[in-house]
């Protein structure tokens, strides 16, 4: 397995992406409403947010952690700056996906080496990165996906 992992580190992201998965990415347009988002999140642990329906231009991400904050009774931080602290399901201020998404994405490209991408994930504390080509999402790298490849389950 050690050898396999070293080999994997040298491979390019584009080479390990499964073409079939490309059509099974959890995508949602940014002006979709919250109920729509929640119904996707009922079975997935994240959603990539795209510009509009049928587009693949990626503009944000919503993860389980973001939703968790919205599910709990509102906790305001000690210092409130910015209006997003007013966004809550409880108070009816979270209306669209773009209200709660994180719009600054850390991403990777098909030409990046898997080892570099993994290091980037560790350094930035993320377990999934979108693979982006010319601003459009073409796949995702997740910790689970890497495990599956390593164990030859893909």
């Amino acid at each position: 397995m050690e050898l396999k992992l070293k080999e994997l580190h040298e491979k390019k992201v584009g080479d390990i992406l499964d073409e079939k998965l490309r059509w099974n990415l959890p995508l949602l347009e940014k002006d979709a409403d919250i109920e729509c988002l929640l119904s996707v999140m009922a079975s997935r642990d994240h959603v990539w947010v795209v510009e509009k329906k049928n587009s693949r231009k990626i503009v944000g991400v919503v993860t389980e952690n973001d939703i968790l904050r919205l599910l709990s009774p509102t906790i305001l931080p000690k210092y409130v700056f910015g209006s997003k602290y007013g966004v809550s399901i409880e108070h009816g201020t979270a209306k669209k996906v773009e209200d709660i998404m994180c719009g600054q994405l850390i991403k990777c490209e098909p030409d990046d080496k898997v080892g570099d991408v993994l290091r980037k994930m560790v350094n930035s504390g993320l377990r999934r990165l979108p693979v982006v080509e010319d601003g459009e999402i073409v796949g995702e790298i997740t910790a689970r996906y890497i495990i599956q490849i390593l164990l030859k389950k893909r």
Partner: peptide, 15 residues
């Protein structure tokens, strides 16, 4: 505005 946000939440008037 922290205190106002809290108050509006209590009053259910944030939206």
């Amino acid at each position: 505005v922290g205190i106002t946000v809290r108050t509006l939440m209590e009053m259910n008037a944030l939206h």
